[in-house]
Amino acid sequence: MENSSSDDDSDTLSEGSDLQLFSEHEFSSDTDSDDDTQQTESSMEPDSQQTEATDDDFWSYDLHPVDIAPFTEQYLHINDNQAQAPAGSPNYDRLHKIRPLIDMTRGNFQKFYKPGKCQSIDEGMIRYKGHHYAQQYTPGKPIKRGLKIWMRCEQSGYTNDYRVYLGKHDSMCGPSLGERVVKHLCKPLKWKGHHVFFDRYFTSIPLLQTLESYGVYGCGTIMANRKGFPSQLKNPHLPERGDAEQMQHNNLVATVWNDAKPVHIASTTSDPLGDGPAQRRKTIVHYHTSLSHFDLLTI
Results as ranks from 00 to 15, higher is better:
Thr159Ala: 13
Lys187Ser: 03
Cys186Leu: 02
Met104Cys: 05
Glu240Gly: 05
Lys117His: 07
Ala224Arg: 08
Lys261Ala: 05
Ser42Phe: 15
Asn235His: 12
Leu238Cys: 02
Asp295Gly: 04
Tyr133Trp: 09
His288Lys: 09
Asp259Thr: 00
Asp36Ser: 06
Gly218Ser: 09
Asn225Gln: 05
Asp67Glu: 00
Leu233Pro: 09
Val263Phe: 07
Arg281Met: 11
Gln155His: 12
Cys153Thr: 14
Lys190Met: 11
Gly130Val: 01
Ser10Cys: 11
Thr138Trp: 08
His96Tyr: 04
Ser171Trp: 01
Glu240Arg: 14
Ser290Arg: 02
Gln74Ala: 07
Leu76Pro: 15
Ala244Trp: 06
Ile68His: 10
Asn225Met: 03
Gly146Gln: 02
Met104Leu: 11
Asp199Ile: 12
Asp122Pro: 05
Thr54His: 14
Gln38Leu: 15
His288Tyr: 13
Ala87Gln: 07
Pro262Tyr: 13
Lys261Tyr: 07
Lys282Phe: 06
Phe198Pro: 00
Ser156Ile: 01
Arg99Pro: 10
Ala278Asp: 10
Gln136Arg: 02
Asn258Ile: 09
Thr54Ser: 14
Gly228Asn: 05
Ser204Tyr: 03
Thr159Ser: 10
Phe229Lys: 12
Cys173Met: 08
Lys192Ile: 12
Lys227Met: 05
Lys282Gly: 03
Ala53Phe: 07
Lys97Trp: 09
Glu123Ala: 03
Ser29Ala: 12
Lys168Leu: 03
Asn91Asp: 14
Asp122Gln: 05
His293Tyr: 04
Val66Cys: 07
Glu179Pro: 09
Gln110Gly: 08
Tyr162Gln: 07
Leu252Tyr: 07
Ser204Asn: 02
Ala134Lys: 03
Ile121Asp: 01
Gln248Glu: 13
Trp191Pro: 11
His195Arg: 13
Met172Trp: 01
His131Gln: 06
Gln232Arg: 06
Asp36Tyr: 05
Ser267Val: 13
Ser120Asp: 03
Ala254Asn: 03
Ser14Pro: 02
Phe202Glu: 10
Gly193Tyr: 11
Asp30Met: 11
Val216Gln: 10
Asp67Arg: 00
Arg145Leu: 00
Ser290Val: 05
Met44Asn: 14
Val164Cys: 06
Ser231Met: 04
Trp257Thr: 14
Met247His: 07
Leu13His: 10
Asn91Val: 01
Gly178His: 04
Met223Cys: 12
Tyr214Cys: 09
Gly88His: 01
Tyr61Lys: 14
Lys187Arg: 06
Asp103Pro: 08
Leu252Thr: 09
Ser89Tyr: 04
Pro277Val: 08
Leu189Asn: 02
Asp275Phe: 04
Gln74His: 13
Tyr133Ala: 15
Asn79Pro: 11
Met125Thr: 03
Ser120Val: 12
Asn160Ser: 13
Met172Tyr: 12
Asp103Thr: 15
Ser171Gln: 12
Gly124Arg: 10
Pro175Arg: 10
Asp56Gln: 08
Ala254Ile: 01
Ala69Pro: 15
Asp32Asn: 13
Tyr158Ala: 07
Pro277Met: 08
Asp295Asn: 14
Arg200Lys: 11
Thr40Trp: 12
Ser60Leu: 11
Ile284Phe: 15
